[in-house]
Structures are given as structure tokens and as C-alpha cells.
Design a protein around this nucleic acid. Structure first.
Lengths: 126, 126
DNA sequence: TCTAATGCATAAGTTATTTATGTATGTTTG
DNA sequence: CAAACATACATAAATAACTTATGCATTAGA
């Protein structure tokens, strides 16, 4: 990513935006891998970007350390594969990871419910 | 709050819980003051605790610095009042604060929408 | 051929929050 | 009636997630 572009974007985003996503990264990764089965890091960033219509972009500096952490915790496993001359590290969710996802989803639902109570933004989910 | 009780609770909560609320504190405070008009710090903690059925407890170490920050940013104003011999600092939202709330709500709705897309937990909002 | 995209990585800095205190008054209870 | 608990403020140090800023290497496109 070009530096000037990053700078312009940061000014455009103008501080504070997406503070809210803090704390949800590991949950997103786990859930995504629980559904899609097997993904590599870069693919996760693109998938999340696409699903959120560009509103949430996972930075590499956040992603890769988190993948390593989840692997260290035994929630993910990794397989290295070569596509031509290029390396990919495919991550899969473990049995413990699947258990963890259940808890995370409960937490997330409770969080969203509480947020809606606190802010009652009358979100239309039709 | 007693230290032993705090300790037991932290073990019961067993790490990781409520990571999700990170980043939402200022939004909650602003929205609450935008609705209720005038509140003091301790009252905010109790209100949030009640609304979330005890699932989200604002710590004093987070609350007071945040109130000071929002005041410094011109989003809140403060009036000191004495109830008998006891001090209360009542906070109100400013005109700029109200503008800010609008943006925060937009962000929050977009955040929740994206989270539901990413995790599609099929939340029932009936 | 230069730039952008793909694909990994990590170290330093930022910042919101937790943890751990401190002070003081008012209320309940054994 | 003393101890514990609730109310009400405050702040400093530690933690942890994330951003920012790099670095390297391959492949695609203008």
C-alpha cells in the first residue's frame, strides 16, 4: 500500500472511526474459519473487506500476530502451501477453536443486544 | 468494592469476556447524556449496569478520565452540585456533543450491521 | 519498467481500558 | 456502635489491542 494513499485515507477517515472494531478481530477470524473451513491470511483480509463493503479493513500488523496467537492458543492449526513460487499459510480451526466460537457468538449476541438497549438506534434489519 | 470480591469475580469472568465493549464507552456516555439530559458519573455506571442487566460494568478508572476528556473536547459541560455534604458533578451534552452523537450512531449502526454480516448470528430482535 | 497487488513478517508507538490505589461521606447490619 | 458496604470523586501504572511503519519476495498490469 502506498504511503501517500494511506495518509490521504487516514485524513479522510479523520480519527476515531472504527474504534468500535477493537476487540472483535479474533472473533471474526475464528467465526470465518469455522464457516469457510480453510483460509490464508491475505484471503481473510479480502473477505472481511468485501463482506463489510470496505468499511472494515484488517491491517496486516493486526492480522498476522493475531493468527499466531490463536495458533499458539491451540484454536487454529496451520499448513504451509506453495502456489507456484509463492507461500501461503492456510489456517484451519481446531476442535477447541470450535468450542471457543460458540462462546464468542454468545458474547457477541449479548454485546449487540446490550448495545441496542443502551443506544436503541432503531436499526431496521428487514 | 472489596478486593477479594473483585478477585473472585475476575476469576469467574475468566478473561476475554467483554473485550467487545472496548471503544464504545464514549459513544455510550454521549448517547445516554443526549437522552437523559443530565447525569453524574456514578449515576452513569449504575444506569449502564441496570440497562445491560449487569453484563457491562463501567469501571471508575475508565469512566472519570473519559468524562474529563469529553469535557475537554467540548462535547460535555459540567456543573458541580452538593447533595448535603457530598459532591456530584453533573454532566450535560453540548451542541457539538449532539452533532457528535449523530455521527457516533451512524458508525455504531454500520458496525453492528457489518458484525451481523460477518458473523450472521441470526439474532432475533422481535 | 515502474507501480500495484499478493503474501508473509515484526518492531515501535499509540491509546483505551484494567488494575490498584486514595480520599471522604452516608447507610446498613451483626 | 463498629465494621462493612454503598456512594462519589480521582489518578497513576500496567496491560493489551491495535496502528503505523517498515522489511522482504513474487506476480500482474499499465
Amino acid at each position: 500500500m502506498h504511503k501517500l494513499f494511506m495518509y490521504v485515507c487516514s485524513k479522510f477517515n479523520s480519527m476515531g472511526t472504527n474504534q468500535l472494531y477493537k476487540g472483535s478481530l479474533s472473533t471474526i477470524i475464528l467465526k470465518l474459519l469455522g464457516e469457510k473451513g480453510r483460509m490464508y491470511g491475505y484471503q481473510i483480509t479480502q473477505e472481511v473487506k468485501a463482506i463489510s463493503a470496505g468499511e472494515y479493513m484488517i491491517t496486516e500488523g493486526a492480522l498476522y500476530p493475531m493468527l499466531h496467537k490463536l495458533e499458539a492458543q491451540g484454536l487454529l492449526t496451520v499448513e504451509i502451501e506453495m502456489t507456484g513460487n509463492r507461500m501461503r499459510k492456510y489456517y484451519s480451526i481446531t476442535k477447541n477453536g470450535k468450542k471457543e466460537v460458540v462462546d464468542r457468538m454468545t458474547e457477541m449476541e449479548s454485546f449487540i443486544r446490550n448495545m441496542q438497549s443502551l443506544l436503541n438506534p432503531k436499526i431496521d434489519l428487514a
